[in-house]
Write a protein that binds this DNA or RNA. Structure first.
Length: 581
DNA sequence: GCCGTTTTCGGCCCGACTGTTTTCAGTCG
């Protein structure tokens, strides 16, 4: 049984326990365990083999036992019992906004409602308002909630949400009445997708700012507008919330609205043990309720005895412990990036000639870019035959002679064929500086087969980087069923770099596996996978993933200057050849 | 159900909002 399934069972268990009215702290224990399991990179089955389940934070004797049971029998007695007691259909009811465990239970106990359809029918027939705690308004809210669930609460890609937010924020920041301004929420943490955009400001004239923010020129619909909070729907259908807070509480509010929830809870628990209370209004001393911090995030972390934790790390994945012990990573910055290692030109499926791509990259201040057009078997992308690669090398050399202070590194994005062999002969690969090897076909191979296929490709001495290691497309296509732990270990053992593909739909590897790769000493390479000049601007999304994955400058190949990069690539190839023997 | 430089028992984050109440429970983020 996979981690995701076990986490899902624990989430469901938490919901069922909650409906049952069980101990809320027990409910939280299940939720926390599920969350921690979701951020593991190793399969529980392997951890169990070593007898180390209880070493996982949030997993004690009892849950370790339940995990073992699930691994061995694919069932959990406790969960099955719970399902007999509480109909599973209630799990979809509790997902309706406005319906919590108590009301869900009441609906079931008093009216036998256990499906969304039954709920809708009862609400429409006006049969709910006689239940204690229910009224006409509740019925209305439930119907709206059902609608919301059916439409599916979509998440927007970071790559779309961030530019959108930056545009809105630039407009606001231009107003003299706006003093401090920041995005908050999952957008500020740079999660790969976000549900809404939160913006926080301090202002000398909140009303005026609210008016500007909700102006019909800017938005499709105003959802709410008050003195300190307004919500709008943009023409893209994204909800944007603006909040105005007092300068004295700006830092506390920013920390609070940035989250994550799990991170905030940990901070508050810590504060409690120190005789302090943390809320969105500041840090207060228990004994006299005096506010001792709140203006800035920095002072909040400081007073809790922590180093300042960058937003991208605030997921309760060990950052608090690291901040406590003074060993937070010095995260890579966009300005550390010296070049782009994954780009396409008109030679395959890119939109621009080589020279234009190169000049755009130079304009960004990069000293180099790797040109990695597709290889022959990817017909749909007009992949290059060995002869064409040969010809392209010639053109690159020619353009390089014309460009001052800039270097195009000849490369390829070579297909990893079904059996793990490569789509171009070694003799050609040997003439290229950067070989990105990627899977673009036979995604459905089973775990063993596709893992072995990818690892075989990584063993090729000419393969520099494994491109988009999981092949996922956010909201469109699942990752192929690859054993990433094995791939990361193979990267370490073969000396192959792993790509962080910055394409907003990919962001592949993801943050969690970046962190794991770093732990195992694997170096990563950010590539934008640009097919147009404008896509060269996607680098910040790759950097965001890298930062969320705790990566530092030294963990990334393309933070090197050209000379060091060349040296590094040479060393890699030599070492890989040694190993092949 | 987890967890421990205050604890192996007794804790476990915090406040706002909503809709139903007549002082508050439930839900949310």
């Amino acid at each position: 049984m996979r981690n995701t399934e076990i986490a899902r069972i624990f989430h469901s268990t938490a919901d069922l326990l909650e409906i049952k009215g069980d101990n809320p702290f027990k409910v939280r224990a299940y939720q926390k365990a599920a969350q921690n399991i979701e951020s593991l990179t190793e399969e529980l089955s392997e951890i169990a083999l070593r007898g180390e389940l209880e070493k996982i934070s949030g997993i004690g004797k009892d849950l370790a036992q339940k995990i073992l049971e699930l691994l061995q029998t694919k069932k959990s007695g406790a969960f099955e019992e719970l399902r007999l007691e509480i109909p599973e259909g209630l799990l979809e009811l509790i997902a309706v906004p406005g319906l919590g465990p108590k009301k869900t239970k009441l609906l079931y106990d008093k009216m036998g409602i256990q499906t969304m359809e039954a709920l809708e029918e009862a609400a429409r027939a006006d049969r709910l308002k006689d239940l204690p705690g229910f009224g006409a308004k509740t019925e209305e809210n439930i119907l709206a909630g059902i609608e919301l669930v059916r439409r599916g609460r979509e998440r927007m890609l970071l790559g779309r949400a961030l530019p959108l937010a930056q545009g809105i924020m630039a407009n606001l920041a231009a107003m003299p009445e706006v003093h401090q301004i920041s995005e908050a929420g999952s957008l500020r943490r740079r999660r790969e997708t976000v549900r809404d955009i939160d913006i926080l400001i301090t202002s000398s004239d909140p009303e005026k700012v609210m008016d500007a923010f909700t102006s019909p020129f800017q938005v499709r619909e105003v959802l709410a507008k008050g003195g300190t909070k307004a919500s709008v729907l943009t023409s893209e259908g994204m909800q944007v919330d603006l909040r105005v807070v007092e300068p004295a509480t700006y830092g506390a509010a920013l920390a609070y609205f940035t989250g994550s929830k799990a991170h905030n809870i940990r901070l508050r628990e810590m504060a409690n043990r120190m005789g302090l209370k943390v809320s969105e209004y500041g840090v207060f001393r228990d004994k006299d309720q005096v506010r001792v911090a709140g203006k800035t995030e920095e002072e909040i972390y400081r007073i809790l005895g922590l180093l300042y934790i960058p937003p991208e790390l605030r997921e309760d994945r060990g950052e608090i412990e690291a901040a406590l012990e003074g060993r937070l990573p010095h995260l890579v910055e966009l300005s550390d990036i010296r070049g782009d290692l994954h780009c396409h030109s008109r030679w395959s499926d890119g939109a621009h000639p080589i020279r234009e791509m190169a000049e755009a990259a130079r304009k960004k201040g990069y000293p180099y870019v790797a040109l990695t057009d597709h290889s022959q078997s990817l017909g749909i992308a007009r992949g290059l035959s060995p002869e064409l690669v040969e010809k392209q090398i010639g053109e690159i050399a020619q353009v390089n002679r014309q460009l001052k202070g800039f270097t195009i590194l000849p490369g390829t994005e070579v297909d990893i064929l079904k059996d793990g062999s490569l789509d171009l002969p070694d003799a050609i690969l040997a003439r290229l500086s950067v070989v990105v090897a990627s899977v673009h076909s036979s995604f459905k191979q089973n775990r063993e087969v596709i893992t072995a296929r990818i690892i075989r490709a990584m063993r090729n001495p000419y393969v520099t980087i494994l491109g988009h290691p999981t092949g996922r497309l956010l909201g469109e296509r699942e990752a192929y069923d690859v054993d990433l732990e094995q791939v990361i270990k193979a990267a370490r053992d073969t000396g192959t770099f792993l790509e962080v593909n910055a394409y907003p739909q990919r962001l592949d590897l993801d943050d969690i596996h970046c962190k794991r790769a770093k732990e195992l000493g694997v170096t990563m390479a950010i590539g934008t996978d640009s097919h147009t000049i404008s896509q060269l601007e996607q680098m910040p999304f790759g950097v965001a993933v890298a930062r969320r994955g705790w990566l530092e400058r030294k963990n990334l190949l393309n933070t090197l200057n050209l000379d060091d990069l060349r040296e590094c690539l040479k060393t890699q190839r030599k070492a890989k050849k040694e190993k092949e023997k």
